[in-house]
Amino acid sequence: MTQTLQWFAPRRQLAPRPRLVLGIMSFVLPLLIWSLVSYVPWIWHPLVEVTEPGSVSYFKAGQRVERELFAAETAKALEAGAPQPQGTPANPVYLPAPHEVLQAFYLAFTAEPERRNEKWLHESLADSIYVIFWGFVISSIIGLPLGILCGTYDVFSRLAEPFVEFFRYLPAPAFGALAVAILGIYQAPKIAIIVIGTLFQQILVISNTTRKLDPALLEAAQTLGARRLSLLFRVVVPGIITDVYKDMRILLGWAWTYLIVAELIGTSSGITWFITQQARYKNFDNVFAAIMIIGIIGLSTDLLLAWLGRRIFPWQRAEARA
């Protein structure tokens, strides 16, 4: 009793076991809701999938029609003594059932490409990861140092940040045609879109994180004889690095959201183009499967990075435990 009450104490960390259980629940619950909506006929199911058109001229087997309409047509047929249409409750095509998605997921990896130059799903995925990886690396090579400089020295901040603030509102996809004109039609313009989408946010986020460094640490370092460069490299950089690392994990997630526009630029390729194409033909089981693949990749990279972070920054690991 008191234990459960403690669960709702603000900012109190739970014991490891309930933490694990709740973490699993966070996946099980949505899955459960999805399953209920998909498999329990009286929950939602606003449509009827026609199995037997009966005497209704415009019904076809496999067509999904609204429940009211189906009922009305059935009543009409009954009145006329004509064969009645048959059907089962159904959801709109936009919401495939879990098993359909699972099947699509499985097929996506096992179905052999039909054409010589068609790609396996994992090859498309590799294309996407290539684009994300280089887009993020290039953005970071510029954004990290610039963000740290802006957060440390007012000169850089005034020189760069007003423009960056302006530029970050410009929609990255609008630069697609320009990127293609300059960088060609293959991966380079896609990488450029990821860079444009990530870089400007990155500069601002990193510079803000840098500004959050306790100024007393800089003062202490100065009274210990640290000057200019050693202040930057021995105090600012190590002082912010764990927070910057966290920022980078979040920014990497943002980079993924730009992938879907990046892959519509130049030649069509990659996992999100697959999503776009399948959605166009309303194959939502494939769409969901691909969305899930991205989710799995995203979550596992983040977990990997979190684990790696605890290795790299030992003082942070102990901090988390303390």
């Binding site: 370092a221 009274t223 764990t242």
Partner: peptide, 14 residues
């Protein structure tokens, strides 16, 4: 001139 602050100011990463 050495300085000791009320807020400790130890470098947490060291």
């Amino acid at each position: 001139r050495g300085m000791v602050f009320q807020s400790y100011t130890l470098f947490p990463w060291l």
